[in-house]
Every structure is written in C-alpha cells, then in structure tokens.
Amino acid sequence: MFQADPKNFRELRTTNRPDIILRMTRNDDTGEMFVGSSDAKVYQVDPMVEQPEFVPMEGHTSYVMGLVDTGKYIVSGSYDKSLIWWNKETKEQVRRIEMAHDRWIRNLTVTPDHKFVLSVADDMVCKIWDAETGDLVRTLDSHIKVTEHGFPNMLYAVAVSPDGKLVATVDRIAKIKIWDFKTGEEIKELEAPKCYTWDPKARIHSIGGIRSVTFSPDSTKVAVGGIGQIGNVDHLAAAGRVELFDVASGDKIHMFEGDDKHKGLVEQIIFHPSGKWLIAVGGDHGGWVQFMDVEKKEVIKQLKAPMHVHQMVLTSDFKTAFGVGHNRLAVWSFEAEAPVEEKTEEAAG
C-alpha cells in the first residue's frame, strides 16, 4: 500500500466530452464517481468502462465549482450561488440552499470525518455547513472584498487539515488564511505574492491568484498552488507554482516551479500519504501533472496531460488516478507497465 512510484505514472485512457469538467469526487469504498460540469449538471460516471455513461443530475444553472461526497450525500456548489444536497441513489435533490453565498461559489471541501461541508465564494466568506442537516454552523470572514486596485477579490479554494483542527482559505491577491476550525478564529495569515500579477501599465488589470490549497498528511504543512509572475496577463504565460509553508512558524519551506513547457495554473495539489512527495495538476491551453519531492525540494517528474486538468482524485491505494478537465476525463496508473513478453519460436508456434 502507498508504494506508488511517480516514475511509473502513465496515462491509461481518456474520455472526450463537449463540456468542461471542473470538479469530481470519488468514494473509495464504493468506487462511485460524480463530476461537476460547465453545463451546470452533476453527472455520475464510471470512467473505467469501455464507453462511460454520464447520468445527469440537474438543478444548478451555472458552472458546478464544488463537489463533495459526505458518505450519505453528494453536495454541489455552483456559480449560481446555490448548494444542493443530492441523494446518491435516486439522484434527486434532498436539499437546496438557494443563496448559500452572495456571490459565485468557487469550491467546496468536506471534513475528514465527513460531518461538515465547507464552501468558499466571491463574497469572500468561507461557510461551514452541517453535512447532514445543511445548517450553517460558522462563517470565516476576513479576506478583503476589494483589492487595493479597486477590483473584486476572489476566494478560490479551501482545505481542512487531516487532523480536522485547521482550515486554510486562499484568494486572488495570494493571501492564505489559517483558521481554527472549532472556534472560527483566524490564526495566521500567510502570503505567496508571486502568485498574483498586477499589471499597472500595459493592461491595467490582474491575473493569477492562489487556486489550490492542501495540508500535509501530518497537518504541519500547507501547500498552495497558482502561477508565477506573468509578463503578458492576456495569457497564462508563466510556469505553475507551488509554495510550501510550515503552519506553526509560518515560514516558507520551499517554492516549486515547473519548467517553461508546463505553464499555467496549479488547480489542485495532492500529498502522497507519506508526506514525502506531492502531485500538482493544472495547465493553460494544455495540461500537465507534476511530481514534487518535499524532502529533496525538487520537481521530480513532469508530464503532459491530455487536457487542462481541473481536478484529480486517487484511489486510496495510490494505484489509480482520475482526472477531469477541459473536454476530457482521464485515467492514469501508478503501476509499472508489465514487461512485454518475448515470443519464443515455440510460443509463436
């Protein structure tokens, strides 16, 4: 278990789609997978079958930007500002919170015990919801709503530490807030300013922001992902960037950056359970998967993905990875390819 070796990581199969698949969730016990789409639908799908069937669940009216499995329900959040609790069996809506946020919902996560769902939106508030009842439990609210240049700030991602004690939220201007989950108190603010490019002269607007955040398995480190400084903000014209911080001290441990062949946003970061290395996925017009060694502090492998990858999930045994993104689903394997048997004259018979 967990003996995955990045060297063996390879693409197994892809499924084409007309839409952009933005989010996914997979129950490792049952193998059930749900994805969220730019066509406003949630789909159940099994990408391992020859011709995957996408079973639609309709209720949102815009991009599905957050999708979590609470065990009992699927919960989705959207640019339409609503949250929907879905019955996994019947695919029917169990609960709908119409104006869960005042502005566009950007992402969701669920606590390790599956008791709470957290949502972040461009109202710059993180809301903690009871996963069973849908009651609002707590709000985390201190990200600034308007940038110093007068533009709307955006709250992109949220993570809960594996020990369930901490929450991290990240925004457009590259601020990272660490919160006490139980009290809702803001513990610390970190920043990764290289992830936010403000162009004051040529184009007079910005690009970037921190798009992904996750804690290390021992909850002592937090990794954030985005893109480096960009000269021409018309394009995602810089390498993807991951910054790793020590939560207790707030010190930056390291900054990982891919090469020029792997430009774009880091859309998601996943730690290997050992905490020794992590995976970053994302892209620009193309997509990529990168592996970063936390101990050696170096990028150890980069490979092209068949699409800009918006999210990835792995099986708990770290043998298989599933990714969703622009017009595609993809499946990768960590298992070494079986050596091709050489045919003997007898076998060829």
Partner: peptide
C-alpha cells in the same frame, strides 16, 4: 485597455466589466 482575455476571460471580465 486591455480586454484581450485569451486566458482567464471570466476573471478578467469580472474585474473590467465591474
């Protein structure tokens, strides 16, 4: 200027249309 949003159109327009 400059509205040429080849990348991240929706973020650019969130800023500039607002």
């Amino acid at each position: 200027a400059w509205w040429d949003s080849h990348g991240q159109n929706f973020e650019t327009h969130l800023e500039m249309v607002t």
